[in-house]
Design a protein around this nucleic acid. Structure first.
Lengths: 349, 349
DNA sequence: TGTTAGCACTCAAAACGAGGGAGTGCTAAT
DNA sequence: ATTAGCACTCCCTCGTTTTGAGTGCTAACA
């Protein structure tokens, strides 16, 4: 992660200038432009020499002879690494009062995606937290009618799961009551991954003879608890990519928007992000670095947030390689801490 | 709705041929093409004359002089009206075994959208049923901890709603039990709109003296029941519009896909569709006819389905004006009946 | 009277070709 | 080490030409 220091100070400045200029304009930038742009009064010729060097080193390249230079993936990488190293810039003030009533987590996340998109003009995604390390808080089975039982499970952070269980034969009221007691006393407070098949088997024994039905019900409960709450992903601003000509030709637009619609690929992105521990939870994928193949021509910036212990989720921004990394990273950081704040304001666990 | 009979038989055939050809190719169709295409052996010259007439009548037009003709909205309209009048074609066989485990309605609808999209190559949307006339099947309050109560409500069709209720002071176990009894005995089997504020007030009285807390809880329950389950809309295949050049220029693509992403406009479409009672639940909007302004250049075909009494939803297909109406309408019809089948296979209400 | 062949005409789209211009690399002078 | 100057490259723009599909009209024909 350390910045490559093999570049002279001057080269660094020039590279930075090239990138910044390109971020703004989206056009290849030439030596003449730079010689005015930068404060180190150099002639275009000198700049040209330096640029030739930079090109040899692979930080920039020209789309064709006699065009200006544009940053390569390697160049971008160096740039964001520099940004990363800069001392933690103070979190800027932000007054969006969007985070009212943190009633339903889902609503908040959806909102977050929207706000983010309109703030940055890029496409954004927010994944709902996966509660693998979450704990069980309450569980209850209730008879709906002769053939149906509804199971309700409340997890930490007030995540509620439920399911209708179809039973072959009726379960007596008292047995149901016993089951509820049993489940609550044994499972309460346990983390989800502590609830193994073995544990369930032991429970079945304890429940005793009412084998068939009780067994079925317990199996169903186990299933509910473990069923991946198929990671929900909220997206917004997918059409922002039309704002960047380099992405908006039919081919790419098609692919990127598909990825946004299907969400499967975004899910991959999320798991990848969650897996890798990195500095401050911010991660930048440039071009080929991204795990999602259809986004070769984009950059993806992700941040992980955490709502209490183990409830981790991801916020992501997808845009052109020439995205405004500095702004994006800052925005992500503030959103991160806002999500934190929500949780602390509602400390129900 | 009656077909305009002012056209000669021959003109009708020619018009139909023009439309069908245009549906396939997307190119303006010329007289020479038609003179071979149709079985009424006519020379191109004759066809030209007829076409000139048709143009005067407003059924077709040429995008520019010296181009072939393409159908106008009026032409399309005539065409689909003819299709509509054709005797109910037998529902074609269809073997997609997609409709397994009708466990979660949501999953099924989402699936339905996907299948539809891949079947038709258009963009599709399915709205979840709004259950205004749905009935309450079961309700239960349970104590999660000192300050929280979880309310679970099962509606017909196994739609489950739940919510955590924060209570100021603890509710005794026995009171909770009483409340549960009270709620179930009085509300069970009632349709949602029968449960009025007045009814709730009466309940409060019956519940007696435990005024504060009980009142709060009852209010919360009422709220849960009535909160609009903000009509969910599932979409799929939005990127299919890239397959039709006439829609895939940046401008339109942008707009249409935005509409798909935001969903607000689709929601309008749904309500519009549900409002208008029409033949067999199939409705076709051509070009300007559609209630969604950003889809001026599309055609929209919608069908309403019904899962039991009052649970109505909408399926929609959005595509170019030159969409394959016949196929689309057929497909929608079968999907309609498949959704019906699901409900009847799972007659839990 | 309805149909057809022929022909001149139109116009969008493709093909072509000549500048223009931004930008580079190199060399020679400072 | 820096810079001015210059020749060279190659993309882009813009105007022109060509092409070709398709039409409308007229005149001949059954």
């Amino acid at each position: 992660m350390a910045v490559d220091t093999s570049l002279s100070e001057r080269k660094l400045i020039i590279l930075k200038a090239i990138i910044q200029n390109y971020l703004e304009t989206g056009e290849p930038v030439g030596s003449r432009t730079l010689s005015k742009y930068t404060e180190l009064n150099l002639s275009s010729a000198t700049i040209r020499n330096e640029m030739a060097d930079l090109e040899d080193l692979g930080y920039i390249f020209q789309p064709h002879t006699s065009a200006g230079r544009i940053p390569s993936d390697k160049g971008y990488r160096l740039y964001v690494d520099m940004l990363m190293e800069e001392k933690e810039q103070e979190i800027t003030e932000r007054e969006d009062a969007m985070l009212e009533k943190a009633d339903k987590v889902e609503k908040v996340l959806q909102q977050a995606a929207k706000v983010l998109a309109s703030n940055t003009n890029y496409a954004t995604m927010v994944s709902s937290p996966v509660q693998s390390r979450n704990t069980l808080k309450f569980i209850q089975l209730s008879q709906v009618d002769e053939e149906q039982i509804v199971a309700v499970i409340v997890l930490g952070g007030n995540v509620i799961k439920n399911k209708i269980i179809e039973v072959g034969e009726t379960l007596s009221n008292e047995n149901l009551l016993k089951l509820n007691m049993l489940l609550n006393t044994t499972l309460n407070g346990m983390s989800i991954d502590q609830i193994t098949l073995g544990l369930i088997a032991r429970l079945k024994e304890q429940a005793g003879i009412h084998s068939q039905v009780v067994g079925d019900v317990l199996d169903a409960v186990a299933e509910i608890i473990h069923v991946e709450d198929d990671m929900k992903i909220y997206t917004s601003g997918a059409t922002n990519i039309f704002k960047y000509p380099e992405l908006s030709d039919k081919q790419s637009a098609q692919e990127i928007i598909s990825a946004f619609e299907e969400k499967q690929q975004l899910a991959d992105l999320v798991t990848e992000t969650l897996a890798s521990e990195n500095n401050h939870g911010i991660q930048v994928y440039i071009g080929d670095e991204t795990p999602v193949k259809t986004m070769r021509d984009c950059s993806v910036v992700t941040a992980t947030y955490e709502l209490g212990e183990g409830m981790k989720g991801t916020i992501g921004i997808i845009g052109p390689k020439r995205m405004d990394y500095e702004h994006v990273m800052k925005t992500l950081k503030t959103l991160q801490s806002e999500l934190d704040a929500i949780y602390n304001k509602n400390p129900k666990e």
